[in-house]
């Protein structure tokens, strides 16, 4: 079945990703490249959840960086303020995001389209302001985050930090992808696509529209929260501005640029949105211009996301092999 092939393809992709550090280590600049790939993995984690929300359920959120910051500050609270191990911080981030996203989703997901976009934008901004004004967490000055230690393994040990976070980020992304692919290839995936197009018809077919929307909102918020927690530990220091509106929009751009009808598109989007500014460094002051131009062009020529381009190339390669 196609799903079997999809998972096999996924495994292959992650095997390559997993081998990258081994090759890069031979170069002097290896650390730099891995240092770029780790944030991509962390963004991917958040973008995968958002992809389900935007692409499959057809809801929009311009406030997901808010959930990332809740994840980050949960970790700070547990590790720095309470002194418990980091794993409890991640657990707390999951719990708080579950509860908060559930409470927010109940009134907010009744809104549609532009109104939902505005409301979620408001949520993101409010969360951001709370952390900026809340001096307990250092306010706008930010706060330092203790090392991520799981049992006695310290991820922040300077000798292995890049490699350790690289594998942590990408294995979490892999896990989230497997869960998401399971989900969308079941009755739940069909239900989400149905309510995306017509909520009334979906309800008439026996789909509990509000609970599906709530569930997918909470799921995406939890993934964003975990991503935020790990990001906090990885950066060792967090500022409220790390998770502001700009980050929310970046996440949505990743999802849309990568392709909304395929979860794997989120990874591609995260890759491009993160790496593009690095590649465009030589344009100096025109960097923003070129960056924006590339994104606009990509959306005009590949309205279904860049994943559709990859799929086309993939199909052509497969055809070539078959001919031989």
């Amino acid at each position: 079945m196609s799903l079997y092939r999809e998972k096999k393809g996924l495994l292959f992709f992650f095997l390559i990703i997993g081998l990258i550090p081994l090759f890069l280590n031979k170069f002097q600049a290896g650390g730099y490249y891995i240092g770029v790939l780790t944030p991509i993995g962390l963004y991917s984690l958040a973008a995968v959840g958002l992809n389900l929300l935007i692409g499959f359920a057809g809801q929009i959120s311009l406030g997901h960086a808010g959930f990332m910051s809740i994840g980050a500050y949960s970790s700070v609270y547990v590790c720095a303020k309470l002194g418990y191990p980091a794993i409890y911080g991640i657990a707390l981030s999951i719990i708080i995001n579950c509860i908060l996203a559930y409470l927010i989703s109940k009134p907010i997901l009744k809104l549609k389209g532009h109104y939902l976009a505005m409301a979620t934008l408001g949520v993101g901004v409010i969360i951001n302001i709370v952390f900026r004004e809340f001096m307990y967490f250092g306010g706008g000055e930010g706060i330092s985050v203790p090392d991520l230690k799981i049992f006695s393994f310290n991820f922040n040990d300077y000798k292995i930090k890049e490699i350790a976070y690289f594998y942590l980020a990408w294995s979490l992304t892999l896990a989230s992808l497997v869960l998401s692919i399971n989900f969308i290839n079941s009755k739940a995936g069909r239900a989400l696509r149905a309510l995306h197009l017509n909520e009334i018809a979906a309800a008439a077919l026996g789909i509990n529209v509000s609970s599906y929307k709530t569930f997918i909102f909470v799921y995406s918020a939890v993934l964003a929260g975990i991503s935020g927690s790990i990001t906090a530990h990885y950066n060792s220091y967090i500022l409220p501005s790390t998770f502001d509106l700009h980050t929310s929009i970046k996440l949505v751009s990743m999802v849309i640029l990568g392709g909304v009808m395929d979860v794997k598109g989120a990874i591609l989007g995260a890759f491009i949105i993160t790496i593009l500014p690095e590649l465009l460094g030589k344009f100096d002051e025109y960097e923003g211009l070129v960056y924006g131009g590339i994104i606009i062009a990509a959306l005009i020529f590949f309205p279904n996301g860049l994943i559709s381009l990859i799929k086309k190339i993939n199909a052509k390669i497969l055809k070539l092999f078959k001919k031989k």
Partner: peptide
Amino acid sequence: MIGGHIKCHPGIIKYLFSFSLSWKED
């Protein structure tokens, strides 16, 4: 197949962790 939505397992979360469930049902 959406027409048979209600004939499937009622949980949502279970579908995250199990692929075999939807495999059999589908």
